[in-house]
Design a protein around this nucleic acid. Structure first.
Lengths: 241, 241
DNA sequence: TGACAATGTGAACACCGTTTACATATCATG
DNA sequence: CATGATATGTAAACGGTGTTCACATTGTCA
């Protein structure tokens, strides 16, 4: 790269002018759509509204997206990736102990959800009618990344002997065993459902908080519930703080 | 009342002909709306579609509901009540031990959600844009009923000495103490957040299952995860089976 | 320079929720 | 029983939406 260029100057970055403009327009569309979603929620996202906001005719948007559903799909994928990175980096910088790293990840999950509730509901709320998650799509990809991040903390805790074995009370399924073997051949497969259950636990807390289902009891201060639940949930895992 | 009537015979039940027709039309509207919701989800419920289905002009619906939002509000209220009764009666008939009654309630919650996912998402999915839950409305009423049902099982377990005290790791809030005192003056207030957390736990499981977030690992058989989580969650409460 | 593809527009279509003016059926009352 | 009031339903219209189509314009590249 950094090729020599004629005096007229152009196309040094191997991207043609049109491609740059197109990329910029994509960004403009997405940011406009995101701001609209933050206000009115994903289900009321209006294509014509986006077109209006960026000063383009409604039909013009169809040069970029095949319709409203495809735009939403793109935004959903972005949201998944964004949440995953938020959780990943929070875990990375969460400290040394598994306890602290778990807690950091959960707090990042909650913070992300509360800071952009409509985007969170884009992922974990009612699915958009037209949207069907492809099995290899970026939504499962985001899920995989988040799962991996949490699982890795669990594995670490287990290696340190800080995560005692669990009595599952039933035989593990084949899927659980395969996944566990994928992560670490010696990892007890019982940890898989336990970690999934842990995710479900704080996900439920976050979901209900986003939907204001705790306000009647905690008002604007539902953080205390979340914090004490983190401790209870981690101590249930045997991961002491 | 029970006024004498001419031979022509009518209006014995104190309901006039118009009132009966009106009530019937209300039912017809609701069932049509429900069937439409089951197919396409609450967010795509169409007033004109309902009108078409029952053979009425769109404007005619406005003699029964002030608009789409009010119809949806009514259906949401019904769903809340319905879920609450399902959970209540499941707990009632769940057996003697707190363990079995808890489990029965949770299973009913899950079954109800999986059997009518769109209706469940009407309650716990992305809120309908125009809808704002009134603080004294039937949604909080439904929540209250469900909460009461579960709390009562917890209280019973505690009275039997089957629910050991919990170390919350923080002082209880005023709201928690008030609610606990309301339920039973001698009940330890720490049970409140623990029960709420328990609700969040299996609610998260159900939500993720409704959104198919477990299919990648469990396929169509995610019940095993739910069942083992019930046990883990109850044993975390100290309620043994 | 000219052909070609990419990009954007305006008008139209079908659908939606909602309001308005009007017709009809039911009711309560003289 | 007749009459006026009220409840119920309709047709037409308005502004909004997503989407398509024919057409103009612009950038790219041989």
């Amino acid at each position: 790269m950094f090729a020599k260029l004629p005096v007229s100057g152009h196309t040094d970055t191997m991207t043609t002018r049109r491609e740059r403009l197109r990329a910029a327009t994509f960004e403009e569309i997405k940011t406009a759509a995101l701001s609209q979603i933050a206000e009115v929620g994903g289900s009321s996202l209006s294509l014509r509204g986006v077109a209006r906001e960026i000063g383009m005719s409604p039909a013009g948007l169809y040069r970029y997206y095949d319709g409203r559903d495809e735009l939403l799909t793109d935004l959903i994928a972005d949201a998944y990736k964004d949440l995953a990175t938020a959780v990943e980096s929070a875990i990375d910088e969460g400290g040394d102990s598994p306890h602290d790293r778990f807690a950091a990840g959960m707090r990042a999950y909650r913070r992300w959800a509360l800071e952009q509730p409509n985007r969170f509901l884009l992922i974990f709320g009612t699915p958009i009618p037209g949207y069907e998650a492809p099995d290899d799509g970026p939504t499962v990809e985001g899920n995989r990344r988040m799962g991996e991040a949490f699982f890795s903390v669990g594995v670490d805790a287990w290696r340190r002997g800080q995560m005692p074995p669990v009595a599952l009370g039933r035989p593990t399924t084949e899927g659980e065993r395969n996944l566990a073997a994928d992560i670490d051949p010696e990892m007890p497969p019982e940890f898989i459902p336990v970690m999934l259950g842990t995710w479900a636990h704080f996900h439920g807390l976050v979901t209900l908080e986003v939907l204001n289902q705790f306000r009647w009891l905690y008002g604007d201060d539902s953080e205390v519930l979340f914090e004490s639940e983190i401790e209870r949930l981690l101590s249930g895992l045997g991961v002491s703080g």
